[in-house]
Design a binder for these strands. Structure first.
Lengths: 225, 225
DNA sequence: TTATTTATGATAGTAATGCTATCATTTTAA
DNA sequence: TTAAAATGATAGCATTACTATCATAAATAA
């Protein structure tokens, strides 16, 4: 038995649904590879087209510009992660255990699920860490938000916030703590690997230490309340 | 009496020292205005030159490219902030009070110090919030780091880490907590104003609530240890 | 003061980026 | 089997991201 997970994406993110054709899937697949290789700044539709063996115009039929493509990929990731979380915390009745599991999922390098899709989750995780914030750190964040581009991120944040409240109903900042955990899971990883003196993990570079830090941070806050 | 604070910048950040001439100072002044107005992506040296009333080539004599200029501005900000912190926490002997003061300084919109310089600190603070991470979220972060471009940020982080340790000598993650406070002071502000459902401050949009959140986060962690 | 370096302004030019448009050909769906 | 839709090939254009040249103005040193 093989079930394929399908994530329904916001239609305003693309001109033509990239999941509806081979070329579209290639765009997703190769853009993940190319962005993770060159970084988002140096990434262009021309290079992507050469990579795939199609033309620039071909890419533009699917995505308006590279910003939309980045937003698409990040939205896909957040939606995928929310599913991972709901799957892996299913039937857990202790909210604290649940929250620990969430933190672990957020801060652990994902392995590519070879079968699932044309998207390499492992490379995408690297993109999220290094480029993810660029999806919303723009002047258009307001319009993009109106079009619900960040809904998967907000949904994930809401899910985490709900678990936090389940742990500690009196806690005053569930949503801010949720966004803090999510962002820091990635930033501490980026810092650990690139600016290690901003972290306490420079020597071992172990994800497990980031997880320990986040657990410490979160549970000290929640137990106090 | 009027003392002017002077920040000595890393010479590898510029081709010609922008503080050494009127044109240079204009570049700094107008780039802060223009970046905060248009965002870093839409900001170009051409537009900046028009703004100032000079030519594109003129700007290139000072800065290699706009990335270096952004790194310059962020480095300036971190150095300036470190001074503010050392000034405002001077002679405070209670480390917890000191840390509270630091959090407040990090999360409070700065007012432009009209006199100090050609840099509008208030606008620069907005740039740091919305564009600051882009200074290091690049493929060149390693090389930039080798050239010490992020030293002011790392120094600030070290200062905050030291205060954290003074509060609680057993605490295991002083540097990671420091970078978390610094990043979150800005991200929660950005979220509050642009993606409010990621925070608990969407209704009032008060900086004081961000400060309260960060204090809660930090001191629960430190008191526990 | 003059001579000389140094900074600026004006102008040009070039390769790459970020698109849009057209049209012929192939693929797919009715 | 025919019409519709997707792709490939090519062209073009405005903007971006630079680099180069040369004349002039301003600062400085002899």
């Amino acid at each position: 038995m093989k079930l394929e997970l399908h994530i329904k994406m916001n239609e305003a993110l693309f001109l033509r649904n990239p999941e509806s054709s081979e070329l579209g899937k290639n765009i997703l697949k190769h853009s993940v590879q190319l962005i993770s290789k060159t970084g988002f700044e140096a990434f262009t539709f021309k290079k992507l087209a050469e990579d795939i063996g199609t033309t620039e115009a071909g890419i533009y039929r699917y995505f308006e510009n590279k910003h939309k493509l980045l937003v698409y990929l990040t939205a896909w990731y957040w939606a995928w992660l929310e599913f991972q979380i709901s799957f892996h915390t299913n039937n857990m009745n202790n909210p604290a255990e649940k929250l620990k599991r969430v933190i672990k999922l957020l801060a652990t390098t994902v392995e590519d699920d070879e079968n699932t899709s044309y998207i390499n989750e492992s490379l995408l995780y690297q993109i999220i860490i290094a480029e993810g914030s660029k999806a919303y750190l723009t002047k258009q964040v307001g319009e993009d938000n109106k079009q619900q581009f960040f809904k998967p991120y907000k949904d994930l944040c809401a899910v985490v916030g709900t678990i936090i409240l389940a742990c500690c109903p009196n806690y005053k900042y569930p949503k801010s703590l949720a966004s803090t955990i999510i962002e820091m899971a990635h930033f501490q990883n980026f810092f650990m690997n690139n600016l290690p003196s901003l972290t306490d993990f420079g020597n071992n570079k172990e994800e497990s230490e980031i997880i320990a830090f986040l657990n410490d941070l979160v549970f000290n806050s929640l137990e106090k309340n």
